[in-house]
Simulated assay, not measured.
Amino acid sequence: MFGKRAQDPAPTTIFRSDRICRVNGEFYFNTREGTQEGPFASREAAEREIKAYIARMQVSVPSQLNATSLVELNPPPGA
């Protein structure tokens, strides 16, 4: 798949893979940030948590950007 995500500087080939893996009977999922989340008792539970994780990340990224912008606009004294 050829595309561009918001954080990518230019269009590139994006490879899709299954985010969920099973280790010793427990389910985990991998994130773009390079973490492995889990364990979960079932694949369905892992899939639900992926959706919740994505929702949390979508909320936190704009918050982090806003916080960074505020610091840049109002640098601490002596900076």
Rank of each mutant, 00 (worst) to 15 (best):
F2W: 13
G3L: 04
K4N: 00
K4G: 00
K4F: 00
K4L: 03
Q7I: 02
P11A: 06
P11M: 05
T12Y: 02
T12A: 10
T13G: 01
F15Q: 12
F15L: 13
S17G: 09
D18I: 01
I20A: 02
C21H: 06
R22S: 13
R22T: 09
V23D: 12
E26R: 15
Y28Q: 04
Y28N: 03
F29D: 01
N30A: 09
N30F: 02
N30H: 10
T31K: 03
R32W: 03
E33N: 12
G34Q: 07
T35D: 13
T35C: 05
E37P: 00
G38N: 07
G38T: 10
P39N: 07
A41K: 11
A41N: 09
S42P: 04
S42C: 07
S42I: 10
S42T: 15
R43E: 15
R43N: 10
E44A: 14
E44P: 00
A45D: 14
A45V: 01
E47I: 11
R48E: 12
I50Q: 01
I50H: 00
A52Q: 13
Y53T: 04
A55P: 02
R56W: 08
R56L: 08
M57I: 08
M57Q: 15
Q58L: 15
Q58H: 14
V59P: 00
S60D: 11
V61G: 02
P62N: 10
P62K: 09
Q64G: 07
Q64L: 14
A67H: 12
A67E: 13
T68G: 06
L70Q: 14
V71A: 11
E72Y: 07
L73V: 01
N74H: 14
N74T: 14
P75G: 05
P76K: 07
P76Y: 04
P76T: 05
P76S: 07
A79I: 09
